[in-house]
Design a protein around this nucleic acid. Structure first.
Lengths: 311, 311
DNA sequence: TCGGGCCGATACCTTGCGGGTATGGCCATC
DNA sequence: GATGGCCATACCCGCAAGGTATCGGCCCGA
């Protein structure tokens, strides 16, 4: 014999009215079944909740305590229903967001701010990993939405280009190229020692570097995995590197970020002036309403901070 | 069409098994009614909770959210039942405790400590008022247990003597009586200016004062309502006063507490050496299990700090 | 490509719980 | 002592929840 929400509703009405007849009326029923519901409830709870001594009905201490809990239970049921509806509508829930260290610099801050303001009931869990790790995470259902760089197989994943930004050169203060006030061309780096990226784990930036330098005679001497590492190595005088423009926002001491001439596009609709692309990435069959909302905010986040990358 | 706890239980089983057949087995029922329960639940909630695509069952985001809430709801129901049982057994609940400022000095501290240790699930609400106010509070059901002084009508109230303590004289430092090292007799106060109490709101202490001074020739010059006020007036040199021995625990600067000879008893079994009585007081028909527990602790609290009043 | 098996949905039957009416029993009041 | 108020009990009924049988779609192996 289990407790029912109906019994709880009956109890609340009776406890408030302290009168079975009036409580029954309020519950749109007659008094006898109400009496039975209360009896059943008391039997299930294992404690007398109402003292009825033929003249007046009063709450026992156990009843007083149970009444408070009863309100909470009904409120909890109601809140749960509301919450589920909001989750289905996409205005509440949890998003597992995959980010790379670099995407974090440009888009993540504004995006998190927007999420907080526009979808306050959405919890965000960040998963920091390289682009390749994000694809795996999405496949395994651990990540709902990734912010990553191409290439990724388009068979099971959907994607949308959310940001294009220029490629910049990072050179140490005092370096001859640090003083030049024009876009640097591949030939400007002839003979320079270049820090590029790991060909597999940071394949995208590595290919960009190689593609930019294609017609020059620079020497690629090191391969790092993180953009920040490259910048720090430049600051340490180990060479020059090429990074997404938004990295300038980090304000690392001892380096300058220099504009570049156009970079040959990797595909048909790429923009040579802004060759660094960031894509939003999700499982083809995982486009939930919440994800749609978040994607909308990703685009707004990009618009809001468009300038720093565009200049 | 309202949600049922049964539906929630069905949903939990199905969400855990992700398989209607196995879930039904676990719930000791067959699969078709389980399917219908889930459908009904989804209709009530207004959101699809499980995606069932002929091969596998998965939780929708709304379902994931609802599952967490579902656990909480069932746990809340269970906790409420347990709580009600404990309240009925007297080991949980709320006690409204009536205290006077003076009872607080002697008994209240140890009592609250004991309550905290022995009945941690019991909430205590203190109501500070004079003895008369407590009787009203008990009558109106606002106070469960009062710590007050006689007299009170014994028709609707039950009481138990919990503490007897001596009466002490409060005299200012430097006063001739402050140096005497023997119990003071009524005659010692001949010609002194005495601070007594309001004959109605602090009737008990007033009558004690009068009864002690009966054979002497002291002059009662002021009537105050609070014991502490009397002590402070003594410190200010306005006269002498008589207070329960436990008041000495306050350690007011500038006054001394002096022993007294015996005070004639007000009733048959009063103790002339310890004429100040404190009674626990409750509605005759309000002796709940919890109150019984609290009364037990009141007695233990008195035993534990018996000494300061007894010396 | 076809058949078998798996699994959830549907149709239909049955039973038991929840609600209704009538009435009893107890106390308070006049 | 008669009356009325109020909760409990007895008994009846209808519906909703559970059971059985079956459908229908999909996957998989031959």
């Amino acid at each position: 014999m289990a407790i029912t929400l109906d019994q709880i509703r009956c109890f609340i009405a009776t406890a408030e009215e302290l009168h079975f007849g009036r409580a029954a009326e309020r519950l749109q029923m007659t008094q006898p079944p109400l009496s039975r519901q209360i009896q059943r409830l008391e039997r299930s709870v294992g404690a007398r909740l109402l003292d009825r001594d033929h003249r007046r009905v009063t709450l026992t201490p156990a009843g007083t305590a149970f009444l408070e809990d009863a309100y909470r239970m009904l409120a909890a049921v109601d809140a749960s229903v509301q919450h589920a509806r909001r989750v289905e509508a996409g205005s509440a829930g949890t998003v597992h967001l995959g980010v790379t260290a670099v995407s974090a610099i440009g888009v993540l801050g504004p995006l998190l701010g927007l999420l907080d303001r526009e979808l306050p009931e959405v919890d965000v869990v960040l998963h920091e990993s390289a682009s390749g790790g994000q694809v795996d995470g999405i496949r395994r259902g651990q990540i709902d939405l990734g912010l990553a760089r191409p290439p990724f197989d388009t068979a099971s994943l959907s994607s949308r280009l959310v940001l294009r930004e220029p490629l910049r050169a990072v050179v140490p203060d005092g370096h001859p190229l640090a003083e030049v006030d024009r876009p640097l061309a591949p030939e400007d780096f002839d003979g320079q020692s270049v820090i590029s990226y790991h060909p597999t784990s940071a394949r995208y930036l590595h290919e960009l570097t190689v593609r930019f330098l294609l017609n020059g005679h620079a020497r690629i001497e090191q391969h790092v995995q993180q953009v920040l590492t490259a910048v720090l190595l430049v600051a340490a005088g180990q060479g020059v590197a090429f990074v997404p423009a938004s990295v300038a926002a980090l304000h690392v001491q001892g380096v300058r970020f220099q504009r570049l001439t156009e970079v040959p596009g990797a595909h048909a609709d790429s923009d040579p002036a802004r060759p660094v692309e960031l894509h939003a990435l999700w499982a083809r069959d995982g486009l939930t309403p919440l994800l749609r909302q978040v994607l909308r905010l990703v685009e707004r986040a990009v618009e809001e901070q468009d300038d720093p990358a565009g200049v």
